[in-house]
Amino acid sequence: MDNDHILKVEHLSKAFFKYQVLTDVNYTLAKGQIAAIIGPNGAGKSTFFNLVTGYHHVTGGHVFFREEEITNWPRHKIARIGITRAFQVSNIYPKLTTYENVRQSILAQKKKTLNFFTPAARLAKEETLELLNLTGLQSHKHTEAGILSQGDKKKLELALALASKPDLLLLDEPTAGMSSEETHETMELVKRLNEEIGLSILFTEHDISVIFGYAKKLSVLHQGILVAEGTPEEVRRNKEAQQCYLGDELC
């Protein structure tokens, strides 16, 4: 009861050799919240995600998931404990079909991947179809994932992350490469997941309408430093945030 955060980051820093990419970032995400991290290219948004999910080695600071410190855990353990992510550049299984992609992630979540003798084709049929329907990929289920359109690859990216039944979902520019219609559909799905099953979501985005339309909390990163934080309204009025990122047209 004492603490209702799902993700807490303390003094997080990352240096690649002598280049400081992230400096002393403190960040807290409340359970069930949907929040965004914004900032110009190179601000450190993806690095932040990479540190939380174990993709990069943390060089300073601590990452907590609920009460547990997960700093520098191996990637698969972080995924198992309940944090999954969708990548900015789609990171899928190009030679498997869309259906097989999603099924693979579901079987991993259900701990069925050490089953040697049941044909995979017989397992997790319903769950796989359900998730394909949810993400709008049902008509492409037998297509090799490598030849999907950019937008569909991003949807598959989201499906792979959701298949792990995470408690915290990290989305790195989830709608990049999507048409405006697809962007709307995808973000509505994300919003529904947040509202209906209470999934905590943290995303990065460049699309201003997506940021202000869906995030309840905004944090602005600039050159690896967290410069502003608050509700969308507060951030919109924040002088520093305007200078760094938002530009004049929003003020």
């Binding site: 999910t53 990548f87 693979q104 089953n115 049941t118 084709a121 792990s164």
Partner: peptide
């Protein structure tokens, strides 16, 4: 053809992603 066999294909296709689905 088993889930293990497909996990091998997954590792062949993209071993990094396979870590991020928790394996």
């Amino acid at each position: 053809e088993s889930p293990f066999g497909y996990t091998m294909r997954a590792i062949r296709d993209n071993s990094e992603r396979t870590e991020f689905i928790g394996l």
